[in-house]
Amino acid sequence: MMPNPNSFNNGNLAVEARNMHVYYGNFRAVKDISLKVKRNAITAFIGPSGCGKSTVLRSFNRMNDLVTTARVEGEILYHGNNIYDNDVDPVEIRRRIGMVFQKPNPFPKSIYENVAWGARINGYKGDMDELVESSLRQAALWDEVKDKLNESGYSLSGGQQQRLCIARTVAVKPDIILMDEPTSALDPVATLRIEELIQDLKEKYTIIIVTHNMQQAARASDYTAFFNMDRDRAGYLVEYDRTPDIFTTPQNELTEQYITGRFG
């Protein structure tokens, strides 16, 4: 039996948000998020559109810094340090906490270079061929592309491109992989392949996945956090628990209404 989120301690904690608020200019997009994410587990963020789940996700590796008006209050603790402290380099954080995006976005480079680029700019000195192969294997793509590593990343299908993006992220050897609706642009078959892949990846990585698809959260995650939008349009965390508990015995009425499809 998986431990309850409240019992996570330093031994199995990957990252933790404490009383986090995110603002875009004067607009508060999410408020008072406190949440502990377990190491080597898959945590799903679900909720209706506009509830701020992607915003919360992007706060975990400071991708929100790229939006000039964005501002984060509160703390995100990673190895005991607040990643929003003044002396923390956001680039360093993004190397440890990687990201896979909604739309597959390979670089206009060869398949090989797509995987190698991130590792190279991070100063990887080892055998690049080996790293590319092992990363593509981890992303369950090696067998499909091993004979055409020099072809453009764009020559692949959408599902393959997304696995290439996962391989590229894995090649940097992150701790945590954030996935922002990684299958929303893919067909059902490609979606299932990515979900299987995510199960394999949790052996080595902590995964946080934002999804619109409740079946996906139920099938593919260990923990589920349900977010909703309050009357002031700020997103907040409604309920967070083991996935089976969320989907069988939700404690909050809103959660129950959402997972049974009554709104959202």
């Binding site: 993004r94 990687g98 995006f101 739309k103 991130g118």
Partner: peptide
């Protein structure tokens, strides 16, 4: 496309690396 910039930043690239490479 901004998608490419985001992808590069997401891998821990610095701004000059994103721009130049």
């Amino acid at each position: 496309p901004d998608d490419l910039r985001n992808a590069a930043y997401g891998l821990g690239a610095r701004r000059w690396q994103v721009v130049m490479q």
